[in-house]
Design a protein around this nucleic acid. Structure first.
Lengths: 132, 132
DNA sequence: CAAGTAGTTGGGAATCATTGTCAAATGACC
DNA sequence: GGTCATTTGACAATGATTCCCAACTACTTG
């Protein structure tokens, strides 16, 4: 039988950070924040915790242009993201039309096990005015 | 004034490979193919050539699930891809509705300099039947 | 064609995110 | 408190990609 995961200080700390953040953040950023708060957690452990959470679909993961993986606690259900390149602030968006379109395209071309990635990147208005 | 790029054997070889391939391939795969053909080109040079081509929008680049960057010679103009996970075979697709949707979402939320990524991944029918 | 010059190459080192390793630490349960 | 499998953390290892720089070569000019 599969054992239940343990409730450790480290895992709780990672989850707590994700609850505080409203945008996407990398594993390393989360590690830094933990260190600043004095709730130090090993980097490996941060990576592991995020992986577990992502596998359980409790957080969403995506890659930025640099290929880094960013994580964020999101609402349940399929959705996409409008992400600020500079601060990570994120708006969850839905596009039912897009979903249907993607499935139709795939079916028309005989593809199976279809998945799609769709993210919108931009500069949010506060970052844009800060830069000016 | 900016100098014109030189026409070197190595760059020609990389372009030739891209013309032969019909799916996405990684820099390392292209490097391997060149080696097999006896037209050896340094790995660094393959990376550089692909970067140059991508910057000039002569090839499209995307990341697979593993975070590797894949390259492919594509038709001009904005389009998206339906990519086979296992063989890389690719169908170019257009989704004007999606473009408008993404722009509208971004504008409604006050985001600027908007870009979006959209790729559809699946298993093409020949790979699916080969697996069975 | 010869020489000059600046863009280009290659291969090995360096980078950087991420994963693997394994002994020590610690939740969960008795 | 004792037991034990899970988890942690420091460090090594990996792997794609970039950096570095001396040797090379595609163009230009005489």
């Amino acid at each position: 039988m599969v054992e239940a995961p343990r409730n450790t200080r480290q895992r709780r700390a990672v989850v707590a950070i994700l609850e505080d953040l409203d945008g996407f953040a990398s594993a390393q950023e989360i590690h830094d924040i933990l260190k600043k708060r004095g709730e130090s957690v090993g980097l490996s452990t941060v990576y592991r915790s995020l992986q577990v959470l992502a596998d359980a679909a409790e957080v969403d993961a995506l890659r930025n242009d640099d290929g880094e993986v960013l994580y964020r606690q999101c609402s349940a259900g399929h959705h996409h993201h409008l992400v600020c390149r500079s601060c990570g602030r994120t708006v969850e968006v839905e596009g039912p039309t897009v979903e249907r379109w993607a499935d139709k395209i795939a079916e028309e071309n005989g593809f199976q096990d279809v998945a799609h990635t769709l993210e919108i990147f931009g500069t949010c208005n506060s970052c844009a005015s800060a830069r000016a």
